[in-house]
Design a protein around this nucleic acid. Sequence first.
DNA 1: AAAGCTTTTTGTATAAATTACAATTAGTGT
DNA 2: ACACTAATTGTAATTTATACAAAAAGCTTT
Lengths: 251, 251
Amino acid sequence: MFKTHDIAMKSYQPRLLQDDLYSIPIDAFFKSAFSVDCVIFGYHEAELKVLLIQRGTEPFENYWALPGDLVYPNEDLDSAALRILNDLTSLTNIPIKQVKTFGKVDRHPLGRVITIAYLALVEPTDLAPHASSWARDTRWHPIAEVPQLAFDHQEILEVSLEELRSRILHEDLWSKVLPAKFSLTQFQELFETILGKTFDKGNFRKKVVKYKFLQKLEEAQRGVSHRPSLLYSFDAKRYQEMKANGFSFEF
Amino acid sequence: MFKTHDIAMKSYQPRLLQDDLYSIPIDAFFKSAFSVDCVIFGYHEAELKVLLIQRGTEPFENYWALPGDLVYPNEDLDSAALRILNDLTSLTNIPIKQVKTFGKVDRHPLGRVITIAYLALVEPTDLAPHASSWARDTRWHPIAEVPQLAFDHQEILEVSLEELRSRILHEDLWSKVLPAKFSLTQFQELFETILGKTFDKGNFRKKVVKYKFLQKLEEAQRGVSHRPSLLYSFDAKRYQEMKANGFSFEF
DNA sequence: AAAGCTTTTTGTATAAATTACAATTAGTGT
DNA sequence: ACACTAATTGTAATTTATACAAAAAGCTTT
């Protein structure tokens, strides 16, 4: 099985090719095209990773790269991003955020391809078996140990990480990486990891509680050999209300 | 004279057409394409406007729309935005900012065209004579009196205004709309207009002075029938320094 | 030339938020 | 019962924000 991505690349040097499995007419991708690349961040226990694929075809064969694909003619951009995310992780219903479109003339060696970058933040799940059809290999890389990447993916990753850092609190991107019930310590760890700095425990707690989008539950932690923490849940409705009122969150 | 934009639209229902003046091969735009749309804001004396064109061709003939064009195959996205801006206003060396890419499948009635939106903030100059070749009419519209727009341009405008408001202080977008030497009152008026709220004069001044990216000059206002204000200039170098250090500006 | 007008500029007292750090608490393990 | 750990609460000192008032510097009028 091969993806439209490969087809389009090959067909750039004009040649007649058959439609692929998705029955998309080849000439829809002639000479210029747009793709979506996904920066899928994974967070688990104070570690931030990014999901990369190892390319199985030229150009940049064997290089690691951000997962991406050409956008189908009948597919919205967001849908394309969600499709890629789902193909690799089997996850659905994940909030995504468009980051920026990268379109330098020479960014793709085989033709004019611009790419719209999206980001998501998920729990680093096992990868879907399907994922192997994408590429030679698929793997979570700690954010500090990312290898040299194909195309301009290094820049895309940097810009996306910057975006994640600056928007993490304004969007609800983070809401999928914590369990439904979590402690304030877990919550703090998440933001410390992503922002790359630490906060005073007491002060952080006060600020968060003030924002009121965390709902204190009756329940507490159990089985830990110290004072158990109370559990909280994310009050999405109140969060949206506050956002609609132009409330500005900041740490 | 006609623009590549029109050509591409017509040629979507496959038909053979000649190359246009820019000698771009027609088939480069077959079936799917990407364009750049510019939200050119104009600020002058506490009034915010936006530059719109009135379309001279179908679809949406006679509707007002954001100026835009297909991106040439050998042209970077930023360059395309600057070209459009320059075509209409003759301005060069204006900071622009990519806002977002809009790509709903049905956003363009004649084919799959996604568009990358850019914004700029300039002084509403006289329009270049050239501009009339673009469209039936070209005009600055006060932001509160924008007519119904073609395509999804209403949404693009809204998102762009939101972006302008939230980034005005972090980017130096504003630096082109004030004279080289300006008073703090002028500076405050600019931000009040764009953000749509007012500030206490004394407190605003204190905050700005604290940020230190304004350079106090020896010169003062002349000929006004009240206490003349001291003049300031924008210290772009210091501003960039502060931005690089992760300084966060806010009003 | 003095008094008045207007807007800039500076000042100040109060309230609110941030910060650093200490004290208390609620569990488990010995 | 006591020690241990991390959660939770508290507090004093500092900084920042806010509202408002006073002073200053030109021009205009008398």
